[in-house]
Design a protein around this nucleic acid. Structure first.
Lengths: 217, 217
DNA sequence: CCAGAAACATGAGCATTGCTCATATTATTT
DNA sequence: AAATAATATGAGCAATGCTCATGTTTCTGG
C-alpha cells in the first residue's frame, strides 16, 4: 500500500465522453460483482479492473483511491434506498404514527435485498474507513425531515428535534439494522424484528413528544 | 498481503514462560501506542514489532494474524468496560429504572475515555472484519442480564426479553454510542446526549413492559 | 476533411505490507 | 552437561495499491 498521496482532494477525472461514462459504470458494476463473489477480501483493484475489462490505470483515472469505489457504491445504494423510503412514506398515509414508522422501517430493510454479500462488504468498508459520517448524513437529514412528516397527522406528534435527538433516532435505528446485516442475524427479515424496531422508534418519538409537551404546559 | 493461510485455527503459540508473557504484553501495549499515534493507517505489523522491541517473527508466534492483535485489544477493552458497567450497576441501586439505565450509559461512555484514537481504530477494525458478532456477544449477554437487574426494583418492569428485544436493546444503544465515537461527534460526552440515550432505552423498556402486561391482562 | 488538442486507455513496475521459515538463542528438564 | 523444549530473529517472498510514461480514440475549428 503506497503511502504517497496528493496533498488534498480527489484528483478523480470527471468523464466527459460517453465512452468514459460507460467505463465508470463498468467499473462500479464489476466492483459490485467482485464483492458479491469474493467479499472484501477479494476486492483488489486489479481484480475489479480485470472484471470491468479495463486496465488499472483507467480505474485510477476515475477513482483516486480504492475506497473511493466503495464510497461511490455506498452513495448509490443509499440514494436508491432513500428514494424508496421516501416513496413508501408518501404512499403510506397511515393515520397512526406507528403505521408510518413501519412503512419506513420496512423500506429500509427491503433496501438490503439482493447482492447481500456486496452490500455487507460495502457497509463494512465505509465503517472501517470511518466515513459513516458523510455517508449517513443524507440519511440523517432525511430522518429529521421524515420525523416531521411522521409527526404530522390526526394526532400531531412533534415539531422539531434537537441535533442530539436526530442523531439518536437515526443511529439507533440504522445501527440496529446494520448490526443485523453484518451479523447476518436469521431474524433480519422477520416480522418480530420489524415489530421491535418500530417499537423502538415510536416509543422514542413518543417520549420526546411527551417531554416537549410537558415543558410547554 | 500474502494469501497463504493455515487450513483453520489460530496457530498462535501460548506463552509458557514469563519472558513470553511479557513479550505478548509488550506487543499489545505497542499496538495500542501505534494506533494512538498513527491510527489504523500506520498500524503495520513491522511498526508494532519495532515499537515492542521484538522481531516480526516473534509477533507472529503469538498472533496468527494482524487482526488477531486488534481483536485481543478489543476483548481486553470490552472486559474492562463490562466490569466497570457491572460495578456501576451494583453501586447504583437507584429506585427508578431511569437512574439505573443512566448509570449504565454513563459507564459505557466513560469506557471511551483516554486513548481515544486507539479505541476508535479498534472499533473500526473489528467492524471492518465483521467480527462485531463475537466481540459484542458478551455485551449482549450482559445487557440481557442487566435488563433484568434494571427491571427489578420498587416498580418491577419486566422479566425476560425475547432474543429480538435483547438484540434491539443492545445494538441500538451501542450503535448510537459507536456512531458518536466513530464520527467524533462533539456532543459525545454532553449531558444532552446522555439524556437522549437514556430516554431511548427507558422508553423502549417501558413500551416492551406495557405490551407484555397488556397481553397478560 | 484534416491537423492539433483534449480526453481516454494501457500495463509494466515501484514501494510497501503481511507473513513465513530456516536458523539462532535462551530456558527447562533429565 | 547434554538433551529438549520454548522463544526470538530477520531476510525475503508474494501480493497489493497505485503511478507514470506512452499509446489510442474522440472532439474541435478551420
Amino acid at each position: 500500500m503506497a503511502t504517497r498521496r496528493q496533498p488534498v482532494g480527489n484528483k478523480r477525472r470527471i468523464p466527459r465522453q460517453a465512452r468514459a461514462t460507460e467505463t465508470v459504470a463498468a467499473i462500479l458494476e464489476a466492483a459490485a460483482q467482485v464483492l458479491e463473489a469474493s467479499g472484501l477480501g477479494g476486492f483488489t483493484t486489479n481484480a475489479v479492473a480485470e472484471r470491468a475489462g479495463v486496465s488499472v490505470g483507467t480505474l485510477y483515472q476515475y477513482f483516486g483511491d480504492k475506497t473511493a469505489i466503495l464510497l461511490t457504491l455506498a452513495q448509490q445504494e443509499l440514494e436508491l434506498a432513500l428514494s424508496d423510503v421516501g416513496r413508501a412514506l408518501q404512499a403510506e398515509a397511515h393515520p397512526l404514527v406507528e403505521g408510518r414508522v413501519r412503512a419506513m422501517v420496512r423500506a429500509i430493510v427491503n433496501a438490503f435485498r439482493g447482492r447481500q454479500r456486496a452490500r455487507k462488504a460495502v457497509l463494512q468498508a465505509i465503517l472501517a474507513q470511518g466515513r459513516g459520517l458523510e455517508t449517513m448524513e443524507p440519511l440523517a437529514a432525511f430522518i429529521a425531515h421524515a420525523s416531521e412528516q411522521i409527526g404530522r397527522g390526526p394526532k400531531p406528534v412533534l415539531t422539531t428535534l434537537s441535533p442530539e435527538q436526530v442523531f439518536v433516532l437515526s443511529r439507533s435505528m440504522m445501527g440496529t439494522i446494520r448490526a443485523a446485516v453484518l451479523e447476518e442475524q436469521p431474524f433480519f427479515r422477520s416480522r418480530a424484528f420489524e415489530d421491535e424496531i418500530v417499537r423502538l422508534v415510536t416509543a422514542y418519538l413518543d417520549a420526546v413528544t411527551r417531554s416537549a409537551v410537558g415543558r410547554e404546559a
